[in-house]
Design a binder for these strands. Sequence first.
DNA 1: ACCAACTCGTCAGGGCCTCTGACTAATGTC
DNA 2: GACATTAGTCAGAGGCCCTGACGAGTTGGT
Lengths: 156, 156
Amino acid sequence: METDSPSITELADTLGARLRAPYRRLQRRLYGSLELRFPDIRRAHSVVFRHIGPDGSRLTDLAAQAEMTKQSMAYLIGHLEAHGYLHQTNHPEDGRATLVKLTAKGRRFVETAAAASRELEAEVAAELGKARVAQLRELLVALDQALAKSAEDAAG
Amino acid sequence: METDSPSITELADTLGARLRAPYRRLQRRLYGSLELRFPDIRRAHSVVFRHIGPDGSRLTDLAAQAEMTKQSMAYLIGHLEAHGYLHQTNHPEDGRATLVKLTAKGRRFVETAAAASRELEAEVAAELGKARVAQLRELLVALDQALAKSAEDAAG
DNA sequence: ACCAACTCGTCAGGGCCTCTGACTAATGTC
DNA sequence: GACATTAGTCAGAGGCCCTGACGAGTTGGT
């Protein structure tokens, strides 16, 4: 209370800090609105829903897309299957593989999350105006590409 | 809805996804460049450096600013103290409290991280141009405020 | 000056999420 | 058919965050 001294790094006003603040806020709002209806789903599970294909995906592919180990992905999938969001079957073309698919409940979650996301974005648009939101989106895509490009240059 | 695309949610093109991509990339680049020189420091520790004041901070204040429990903050501080980035002393004005301060090594880390951040940002500016980076910053601040405001409205 | 209420930080314990290493079973290659 | 590769599992560990309970110190009312 007494030492209200300003933090060190936050003063640096890095681009990362500027990105982090709204990202965290958005996350909290979104998961906050979903946790009542889908209490089994936690943040870690979002990578599964983010990458799973409409016709199902292999565990290995999901793990690769999420940039995590197969074991970790299996842990997440196990939880979601136990709670009825996914089901696993033998892959029809590869006896080693499993095919992970959304159940009806899983699809319902994805749709609810998407709707909540759209609603949040509408609130933002009401504050900022559609034009500025569009501009922000465009700049974020450009930023991502710029980072990808300069990473390549650094590696090459 | 029944497309052949590899992902479901990523298609939704949410603002969160647009924010996440460059944020993650930035994080990876930044921590990647630091881990060789400061292998003891992991991502979880960043909240300590982010909030610690130039004259030190109390554990309780750091925990509150990081929005975590005092126990969790103590865990992080313990690690950083063990590796020489922080030191703890009795608080001169409150016998219950400790004062957590950066050591010289800790300050070196903060400065190195800030420099790496500036360098990354320069690379981005080289791609996008200074004007667009400034515009992006401004929009990110506006977005954060918009989210804060609409959260208030929802709560009130 | 006292005592109750509060606050600071710690100890103990647990859960979630991710990792590494070792393994089996199925597939692909020669 | 022999061998390397790939899909996924089992076992174990560590990192990071939580809750609950606690002793020590501070604060405010009387």
